[in-house]
Design a protein around this nucleic acid. Structure first.
Lengths: 133, 133
DNA sequence: CCGTATCCCCAAAGATACTG
DNA sequence: CAGTATCTTTGGGGATACGG
C-alpha cells in the first residue's frame, strides 16, 4: 500500500462489498462509535489524566448525568477505560484510560490538531457559501 | 507542549471554560461534524478518487439519497469537497476533495488504521464484559 | 458522591413519490 | 442521471425524581 489514495480505495472496498453485515466492518464500527457525540470527548478528557465522575461533569458542562454514565459504561465495555471504586465515604469512583484507550489518543490527537488548525478556514468557507446562496 | 497528556489538558480547558458558546470551540466543532454518521465516510470514499453521485450511492449502500445529497452539501459548504457539473446528457456531477478536504485525509487515516488494528481487541473486550454481567 | 429509573420530546434519518 | 419535496418514524438524549 503506497499512497493515501490507494489506502482509501482499500477501505472503501471493505464496506461497499456485501460480504457480511455492515457492523462487522472495523472502519464503520469505529466511525459509528466516534459518532455518538460524547465518546471521543471523554477519551480526550481522560487523556489529560484520571478523573472522577463529577469532575468529568464539570469539565464537560453540557453532558447530562445520564449520558455521562451511559457513555462511560460503553467505553468500559469496549475496553477503552477502566473504573476504580474507592470505598471511602462518600464513595468515590475514578475513571482512567486503559492501554487500549491510551493508544487511541495518538491518532485522535492528529485529528484534533487538524481541527484546531483549519477551523478558521472552514468558518470562512461557510460564510462565503451562505453569501453566494 | 511536550506530552500528549499536556496537550489534552490544553484542549480540555478550551471547551470546559465558559468563554463563549460551545459551538465556537474548534475541537467540539469538528467532533460534532465527525459525529454526523456520513461525513467522514464520504471524505474517506472521495479520498480514493473523484466520484459521481450514483457511484457514491453504490459504494455506500446504506445511505439514503436524501442523506447523501444533504451531507454532500454540508461538506461543500465547509469547503471540504467541490462539485463539478458536466452538461452532458444525461447530466453528470462529479464530487472531489478540495485541498482542505485532502488535508483531512491524513489525520483521518491514522484513525482508520487504529480502527483496523484494534477492532478485534474491542470485540473481545465486549464479549468479556457481557459475559461478566 | 455516584449513580438508576422514568417519562417524554424532537430533530435526524428513512421511505416514497415526483422532476429537469 | 441527479436531484427535490413530503410524510413518517425512531431512538438519542434531556429533565426530573429517587436510591445506596
Amino acid at each position: 500500500m503506497r499512497t493515501l489514495q490507494e489506502e482509501a480505495s482499500h477501505y472503501v472496498e471493505k464496506w461497499s462489498s456485501n460480504a457480511g453485515p455492515i457492523g462487522n466492518c472495523p472502519v464503520r464500527g469505529v466511525l459509528d462509535k466516534i459518532g455518538d457525540k460524547w465518546s471521543m470527548l471523554l477519551i480526550l478528557t481522560l487523556a489529560a489524566g484520571p478523573r472522577r465522575f463529577n469532575q468529568l461533569r464539570r469539565e464537560i458542562p453540557d453532558i447530562s448525568q445520564k449520558m455521562l454514565t451511559q457513555t462511560l459504561r460503553e467505553l468500559q465495555r469496549d475496553g477503552l477505560i477502566s473504573r476504580h471504586v474507592f470505598d471511602t465515604k462518600p464513595p468515590s469512583v475514578e475513571y482512567r484510560l486503559t492501554a487500549l484507550g491510551g493508544s487511541l489518543t495518538e491518532p485522535l490527537s492528529y485529528l484534533i490538531r487538524w481541527a484546531d488548525q483549519h477551523y478558521g478556514q472552514i468558518d470562512r468557507s461557510r460564510t462565503d457559501f451562505d453569501k453566494a446562496a
